[in-house]
């Protein structure tokens, strides 16, 4: 109601504030619910942790959405990486090949195209090891970064056990039937037995067993020849052939050695000993000896 009495403005202003009815502080239903929701434990935790995370995520996302920023980051990372990898502690200056002969060392050095100095981070040691192991002469290799900037290649070479001649080529074979090298002449590896003939390679174990059996006459053995892809001939000094049977050649050879020990067979002038039938060894004399025999018995020469 409008006052009938004129009041001083100050008084009126003072009254206005006084007159205000006590405000009803009741929250609206939705405000109440909102507050309760905000006080829920899960929501509070989510807000306290999630909001800063989201903020940081948004800032990072916006910043990286520009390509120049991404380039900056990757460039910086590469730079730091480069600087770290090129530190002298990681620099390799030389290659050291251990445990191989000169030929293999030279092969390894040509096969690993490394230009020193190089950082050890830039080398793939596993791949290098595979490369080295691809060499015939290498049985097993390990590559590691050694002290003082040396790249050490440790090699276990293949040990040849025989020389295999095929088509006038002399190959070295090791126990695993792996060809580990080629030699120019037989004289280069006089210490190794020679095998030859078609199918010789496939029966290497048998040949090696024969060589072991022939150990007492080792000085005389020149080669082992596979005949007709089924049996072995032992070729001795003076082109004497010991023809071994298809079945159980080791026993036959053993027997022959025993005969040799007792009868001194090999020092005689013979051309071949035929043991193809082990029950009935046959001795073939050289033509000179045969002629001499014939002459002695008065029947004349054969030719």
């Amino acid at each position: 109601m409008r006052s009938l009495i004129k009041r001083h403005p100050y008084e009126r202003a003072a009254r206005k504030t006084l007159k205000r009815a006590p405000r009803d502080p009741a929250p609206s239903k939705w405000r109440y619910r909102w507050q309760r929701w905000m006080l829920t434990r899960g929501v509070r935790t989510t807000l306290r942790i999630g909001t800063p995370l989201l903020l940081v995520g948004i800032i990072a996302g916006v910043w990286t959405s520009k390509p120049e920023n991404r380039a900056l980051v990757t460039g910086k990372i590469a730079e730091v990486q480069e600087a770290f990898q090129n530190r002298p502690e990681f620099t390799l200056t030389s290659l050291d090949v251990i445990g191989a002969d000169e030929q293999t060392v030279a092969d390894v050095q040509t096969m690993l195209p490394i230009e020193f100095p190089v950082s050890s981070f830039d080398l793939d040691l596993e791949e290098m090891r595979a490369t080295v192991e691809d060499l015939y002469a290498v049985k097993h290799a390990s590559v590691r970064v050694g002290d003082g900037g040396v790249l050490e290649v440790d090699i276990v070479p293949r040990v040849p056990v025989a020389v295999w001649r095929e088509n006038e080529t002399l190959r070295l074979i090791d126990e695993d039937k792996v060809v580990s090298g080629i030699i120019e002449t037989r004289a280069a590896r006089r210490d190794l037995p020679l095998i030859a003939g078609k199918g010789a390679y496939a029966h290497l174990e048998e040949a090696l067993a024969l060589f072991r059996t022939a150990n007492p006459i080792k000085e005389d053995v020149r080669a082992l020849v596979r005949m007709g892809e089924r049996r072995w001939d032992v070729v001795l000094e003076g082109n004497i052939r010991l023809m071994l049977p298809e079945e159980n050649p080791v026993a036959a050879l053993d027997r022959m050695i025993v005969i040799n020990d007792t009868k001194d067979m090999l020092s005689r002038d013979i051309a071949a000993v035929d043991m193809r039938n082990p029950m009935r060894p046959v001795l073939r004399m050289s033509s000179d000896a045969a002629n001499a025999l014939r002459r002695a018995s008065g029947r004349g020469d054969i030719n």
Binding site: P25, A26, P27, K29, Y32, Q35, R36, L39
Partner: peptide, 9 residues
Amino acid sequence: RTAVQAAQK
């Protein structure tokens, strides 16, 4: 509602 809200707060 008023009382509960204030107490919760």
